[in-house]
């Protein structure tokens, strides 16, 4: 075990799934998933399309609640709190667990308003506070230098890579504990992708990141832990180095080496 793997083991558990089963009507999308994720780590979810990885990711901030016929059995704990309990305020949960989507989805508002949006809908009115938080968030995603003179410009005028970093800044502005990312770079060019990947490395000092990716090399580059899903099963979950050098399960090996199916 390397030094960094030892360090991860000692970190606090922030996400825990216990016997999670997810159904869309009669279709079972996830089967008895158990997993523990530590704070300030990056965990990558990999697997073929339809394997359940995005469904599982969306369980952590209850994004699946909107889907008709969705129901979940088992428990998901964020920071030791069961998030599917009736008493949980979903809006509060989503403040703690932010999400970045595949395609950048800035609002048709100014750059400033995009980042300030989350704070405003959570009732923050102090203009100085909002301004400070906007600047800090834009700096955290390394976008500040590129937009500081144009904060009133429409966010839609930014490039795809800048829009995605803006969306991450919008997520950071409300200071979540966890950031969920569903293929956040699949619509970006290699340079923008590299910037986001570098950003993730910096962000994990403060946040816990869970990312769904179809890009094996991206999972290998950026994550501490990797979980491989197949047909609703969590086939293997281990240190990323182990998954990409010596996976224990044949299915994992076949998938990561491109021999699946």
């Amino acid at each position: 075990m390397t030094g960094s793997e030892e360090l991860i083991k000692e970190k606090k558990t922030i996400i825990e799934a216990r016997n999670v089963n997810v159904f869309y009507g009669h279709f079972q999308a996830l089967k008895d998933i158990n997993i523990i994720m530590k704070e300030n780590t990056v965990t990558a979810f990999i697997g073929p399309s339809g394997c359940g990885k995005s469904t599982f990711l969306r369980c952590f901030n209850r994004m699946n609640d909107y889907i008709e016929q969705f129901h979940i059995k088992g428990e998901i704990l964020i920071d030791q709190k069961k998030i599917y309990w009736k008493s949980v305020a979903v809006e509060e949960l989503r403040k703690e667990v932010g999400m970045v989507f595949q395609k950048p989805n800035p609002f048709p508002k100014s750059i400033f308003e995009n980042v300030a949006y989350g704070l405003k809908i959570h009732g923050v009115k102090d203009k100085n506070f909002i301004e400070e938080r906007v600047v800090k968030s834009l700096k955290d995603v390394a976008l500040w230098d590129e937009v500081k003179d144009d904060l009133k410009k429409s966010a839609l005028a930014l490039s795809g890579g800048q829009q995605q970093r803006l969306c991450i800044a919008r997520t950071l502005a409300v200071e979540p504990k966890i950031i969920l990312m569903d293929e956040p770079t699949s619509a970006l060019d290699p340079i923008s992708t590299a910037k986001i990947e570098e950003l993730l490395f910096d962000l994990k000092q403060k946040y816990t990141i869970v990312i769904v990716t179809h890009n094996m090399q991206q999972a290998a580059r950026i994550s501490d832990k990797t979980a491989f899903f197949y047909m609703g099963d969590l086939v293997e979950y281990d240190d990323t180095k182990t998954i990409f050098t010596n996976p224990k399960q044949e299915k994992t090996q076949n998938y990561i080496t491109g021999r699946f199916g």
Binding site: M216, Q217, A220, F244, T245, N246, P247, Q253, I256, T257
Partner: peptide
Amino acid sequence: YTPVAVDLR
């Protein structure tokens, strides 16, 4: 081809 696992070995 950036091989991994058994291919890399």
